[in-house]
Design a binder for these strands. Sequence first.
RNA 1: GGGGGUAUAGCUCAGAUGGAUAGAGCAACGGCCUUCUAAGCCGUAGGUCUCAGGUUCGAAUCCUGAUACCCUCACCA
Length: 611
Amino acid sequence: MSGRELYQHGDYCPTRNIGWCTIHGILIFGTHIMFNIKHSLELLVSAAIAEATGLSNCNANVIYSSRPEFGDYQANGIMAIAKQLKSNPRELAVRVVSALQSNDLIADAQVAGPGFINLFLNDATLATAATRFAHGEQNLLGAVDHPQRIVVDYSGPNLAKEMHVGHLRGTIIGDSIVRVLEAVGHDVIRQNHVGDWGTQFGMLIAHMESLGENSTKVHTQLADLETFYREAKSRFDLEPGFADLARSYVVKLQGGDRDCLSAWQKFIDESLGHCEDIYELLGVTLSKDDLRPESFYNNELADIVNALREANMLTASEGAQCVFLEEFKGKEGTPLPAIVQKSDGGYLYATTDLAALRYRGKNLAAERVLYVVDARQSLHFQQVFAIARKAGFVPGACSLEHIAYGTMMGEDGKPFKTRSGDTVKLKELLDESVRRAHDIVSAKSPELSPEHREQISNVVGIAAVKYADLSKNRTSDYVFDWSTMLSFEGNTAPYMLYAYARIKSILRRQGEGVHPERSEVRITAVEERNLIIKILQFPEVVDVVASECYPNYLCAYLYELAGIFMRFYEACPVLKAESDLRASRVTLVSLTAATLKQGLGLLGLETLEQM
RNA sequence: GGGGGUAUAGCUCAGAUGGAUAGAGCAACGGCCUUCUAAGCCGUAGGUCUCAGGUUCGAAUCCUGAUACCCUCACCA
């Protein structure tokens, strides 16, 4: 049972324009609350079910109709309720329909099939709602009924190396989720849990130190982090003295040695600079303020282990400090440990995550914590969540969710690598996409200036990579393929950006003739009606993305919106229409533009006025 | 071996709480530019939703089993 309080009988009060039902004094289909046709229908139908059966809390099960003749929405809940009551579903559906309170949202409700109720929306209400949006009397996205403080952990690259394609998904999926949550009114705290601590840094600092103290030189050396890491690793493996030096640096680092710390800091700053360049290029909203690196929790780790010991959750096993939980079994059903302290006294990933979770629960007062992390870490997070709950590190009501995503594969179905088997640097991937976009832009629009073409290909190239990822269900692995991604057809960023550019072109050409903020939207063709309904459904999909964290729902919606607009564009002349009709259509075009721009914005994509 | 995941058109992918005739794009074939950007629109063709059972008025979706592939299971993150 989510959020919203249920209908209480007899609470309706009509309002002047479109709005209607008040539930516990809250205007649902009105101005305050997120405008949401589906919720309104659910409330209306469940009220009618209550009226017809005396049952409260019934799920009307309202969904989009699969075919036009079945209406705009359909209520499928009747069959289940009839079964529960051992009554005839069709008869019940008829009684529910006649129990529907008169309202101006539903124009017609028809019983069909075994007990479906097909709902047809009122054209005048749709037109009025669209007009109100255009006039700015109602926001496309309003505030959620219960704003939450939500911590979102995403991106989290390892600073020892350069960002590679493996970091793309978490970074952009997380960024989109964060934008959506904020848009619906939640209080979002971003956390970039970067890896800046661990044994590998001893090796890197040792290598850096040996190259000299000169800071400009360091900057140059670290320009290619990947090569730098490889060199350090190779020396670590081959030079006997170097490995010892590296290990001694680790010890000194952990002991708080000032020189070592300052060298480490130098390295971290350089590496962070690389990340920031990527974030800038990707248009990701993470900033320095969102950094909570692993080292941030260094001083908490001993206390985490102590707290677990005091809670009697700790077991020594093979020299390590472990937490064994009933629900986790390892090989041959033996208990599976989560190790929080190594036999040499060192701490691990799980320890840091427990500290982070306690910080988020206690210090940040999170009500919901989202971990946008690779699906392969699922077991790790299940363990960490279970331990944190049992140890009381987070409030019981706090929701902990692993927002898992799959792996990016190459065309061979194996994890995406270069031909030589190396990981692909994110920077190189993005540069190549922009380069390919540039070739296409130059071929399609040779009349544009070189600067303009460059600007377009920058936006299109980045958007293509992001959209190709965001448009897929995050839980599954997917095949990265230049040809499908940059074919610029179908459900792709270029298609969406092109639709937007066409829209803007109309609005430019119409000049000062029409003022959408004072014009009336009318429905004179089915393409107009379809477009209006789709626009009004924007809040519904955003709502689902905010709760389920699947950005591909939003992509699918925007693709459909763009498609419906294209059909409107083909069928309904805008600038050639006369007077009121022209004003109405220009207004619709303007609303479509606003919705597309906002939707793409929630995905973290820029738009182009022209392409 | 335990646990988790995936299997949908030739290819790449959608299919939220079980709903009516399973959807897109690419590739193939055929239409539409002297009219608001053809990076577009319309149409044709393409499916035993891995297999076998089960639950249900109704299953790609839920349950059981099988097969294939992937991930994961003690001191990496």
